[in-house]
Design a protein around this nucleic acid. Sequence first.
DNA 1: TTGTATGCGTTATCAT
DNA 2: ATGATAACGCATACAA
Lengths: 371, 371
Amino acid sequence: MGVRIPRPPLSSSGRATIADVAQAAGVSKATVSRFLNHRERLLSPDIATRVETAIAALGFSPNPVAQTLSRGRSRLIGLIVADITNPYSVAVLRGAEKACQDAGYLVMLFNLGNEYGREREAINALASYQVDGFILNTLGRGAGAVDAVTMHGKPAVLVDRRHDGMEADFVSLDNVGAVDLACSHLREGGWRELLYVSEPVKDVSTRRERTGAFGEFVATHAADGVTGEVFECEESATDALDDALRALHARSTKTRRAALITGNAVVTLRIAAAMTRLGWQFGRELGFVGFDDPEWAPLVGPGLSAIEQPTDAIGRGAANCLIERLRGLEGPARQLMLPGHLVVRGSSAPAALAAPTASATPSAVSSTALP
Amino acid sequence: MGVRIPRPPLSSSGRATIADVAQAAGVSKATVSRFLNHRERLLSPDIATRVETAIAALGFSPNPVAQTLSRGRSRLIGLIVADITNPYSVAVLRGAEKACQDAGYLVMLFNLGNEYGREREAINALASYQVDGFILNTLGRGAGAVDAVTMHGKPAVLVDRRHDGMEADFVSLDNVGAVDLACSHLREGGWRELLYVSEPVKDVSTRRERTGAFGEFVATHAADGVTGEVFECEESATDALDDALRALHARSTKTRRAALITGNAVVTLRIAAAMTRLGWQFGRELGFVGFDDPEWAPLVGPGLSAIEQPTDAIGRGAANCLIERLRGLEGPARQLMLPGHLVVRGSSAPAALAAPTASATPSAVSSTALP
DNA sequence: TTGTATGCGTTATCAT
DNA sequence: ATGATAACGCATACAA
């Protein structure tokens, strides 16, 4: 069967418009519009089919720009991400994208490239395109950007970083649960001297929560001989980092081995570089569990144990929260905290001959075989 | 100085419109529009300032949706990417994004999530939002998507994958140059038994070009004792991969050592997994150089030698090509082939005591110190 | 149930 | 140089 060349639209423009369809079907523009929007009610069957065939014949599809202008809504969701180079952000983005698509929304992405000053600009740009709502995977400090969104009167959902002054839905990893998961795992493996390495905490909520939970854990298990410190790792301060690792290692003994916990994959990368600088191996000189489970985690040394985040669920959850609001859901801001997942690899293996403790792992934990 | 609450716009909507500005300045809408678009010419100084202050007072900024509807152009550039999970694609995206932004364009991203069947859908969706042109970082086979773009009559530029039936600008890595770079480096290091591992070549132009160039290199240097084969590595055929590595290793001798070359980071990941499965180490049992230089390349074994792609330049180049077309540039399709960059690490180190050959490296090559 | 007329915010073609 | 006014493509209040 050959390809049918559709009858050329009558309008001057390249694409068929609602007017063309109306003329072809011998009805008014309003009728066509009704067919498009209020199909079920308000339509006589005979004329409906006439419109339907006309639409098919002309290959008509409505112009979303015109729809947006007319409706004031766009079925676009604005997604602002701090740094699209970060695989974690991308994974969340994908989840959100899928959920939006399922609900008939398209996401318009704005990448900040880590220039937090562009937050307002991003919000305004997206708002000017009439996005119906925002998903914010970033938020510098200060309320600057906050009221930028609320000012536009559009709903927003925060991902990963909460912000005090803002009454918005919030979804993220259950940080304290995840920290407990990691620390408990290390403790059970005989690791007692703990060092939590974070990017500069500042007032980034995620980092605050994680370091806080770490402090809690250490305090709670002090009687058990657990010791812990936090190290804030600056981008280029490699010497300071190396010193911190050396100090940690110096405290390590056969019965109280020392281990690292990193706050995200960026830090993990720095730590891994430091370890090769020092000529040390994960799981031998120092134990290790890191937040985020990048694809390369199994390849470094004996494999890096990790806390995998439910990125897809976080993205979907955020999108769904927002979509519910767009559908008119009222009520106070909600919180969605999703559990992390511990992936055990060689870097946190218990001492070869020790560890008579639990061979069964908690239910939230699943271990993957080494490759 | 306190915050001035701007005089509320007179329109029903939340934002000030051109009509509000006109009224506030005591002029007509047309005049305001002229001020916005044809500032230099056609304007009396006194009335210009009146408009200007009115705009400032109301905090007016034009509504791009309305502009798009009226002009038929949107100052949006549609970027379709095969898989946003792929760091290479993201890096290119970032380059393109920057160039677009510099030229006053916003990019609208569509991620295929590797579902190539959605190509047409993506193109149509973007086109319906009146994007002014396309950057295509993907193109399944078949001309399906090709005429989808040309049909919309909008200019497009292809990145990374060319497509025969399509008269469009094309920008990518200089694949044959890059292959020569990698192979020459290995040859000089005493690696003679070469295996090029690629994803299934099918008719993806990049893969065809690289494997082709590899074949050329081997043929050219056969007299020098160089031998080479190509292995197409399926997603889940780990056994076949392991066998291929074993076979390669079996052919390795002290004077004719065996090395791998991978076609991209995805394959590199599979290879690295295979190496740990086999208990082998890069640079010892097998030499290695891979296309793409992921952030974790320095961390695997002795460090993975890599061909770094000029992703930023590729992205910028693509965007600039397109923008030139949007500005009216005519003429035949152009090609932009950017050189790769060899990063030497431990995985391709010459045999400890051998290799009296060139200590100086070609100019296109730069080596980075091991961490 | 269907058609007419108007508005969404801008640009552009006329006059003046 | 400036002001009415008609598009742009669609949605909708109002009439019929």
